[in-house]
Write a protein that binds this DNA or RNA. Sequence first.
DNA 1: CCTCGATAGTTGAAGCCTCAATGATCATAC
DNA 2: GTATGATCATTGAGGCTTCAACTATCGAGG
Lengths: 138, 138
Amino acid sequence: MAERRRQEEIVRLVLELSKTLVSHYQARLAELHLTSPQAMLLHQLDDPLPMNEVAGKLHCDPSNVTGIVDRLEGRGLIERQHLTKDRRVKHLALTAEGRRLRRRVETILSSAPGLSTLPAADQAALQDLLERSLASGN
Amino acid sequence: MAERRRQEEIVRLVLELSKTLVSHYQARLAELHLTSPQAMLLHQLDDPLPMNEVAGKLHCDPSNVTGIVDRLEGRGLIERQHLTKDRRVKHLALTAEGRRLRRRVETILSSAPGLSTLPAADQAALQDLLERSLASGN
DNA sequence: CCTCGATAGTTGAAGCCTCAATGATCATAC
DNA sequence: GTATGATCATTGAGGCTTCAACTATCGAGG
């Protein structure tokens, strides 16, 4: 079946593009001494959030967030806080230093990596196709 | 700039789709007691290949291949061999057991994950757009 | 009150990944 | 021949990721 072949190729392309994008950001973030996951986490913290929800936004296991937060907190960029009555939940909040660094992260994350050479119409088409792939892919 | 927003969104979609795809394969491969990287490596070994080239095909660091190979070799699925005069290069070759397992890996890797609900024309368009993104993305 | 099931976060084990440094081998130039 | 620089694979450190097991806390029913 030819369709199957095409689907395999699409999968291969998505995985490769994903790796390329991550490497690109990784290089730009290195000067801030941040890794991609650390930057993604800071990116979420416009306002304080429960670790719970951060894990959801990052599409990863809660136990994973613990480690990333440990390192960021160790550098004084974020803090764990108890903002609600429920003493189980810990909120993550930026420190002053963290807020300053986050601004630089934002400009890096919004610096488009190569994609900008695609015509606007193609970008719109690509976005649409990706959304539908994601929706169908359960 | 609205284009920048769209590009950010495309990046987000690619990363999320990539994660979804990997999880999908991961679940199907679990019954073979294989991880995705292990399966990807077996996938390359139709014929024996230098570890060097395997790293290239997998788009990862050579040092990473060492670890994956250690585990696969420990299970008797592949072997390190010296097939050339150059005594630095080690070729990876499937064992009989490895060949048997690889056949099952191939059927899993070719089982398309959700993408199949996209009309053929859209699949073609998506493939084309991804190829061009990858080409322009340095 | 108090037990029981659910939920938030953590820990430990196993594997993946990159980078920098190392040892072995090769190829070339002197 | 031998020194020099490049190349192949490995190792170790640091970080990411998931899963399963654990602790602490919460909420509801008895």
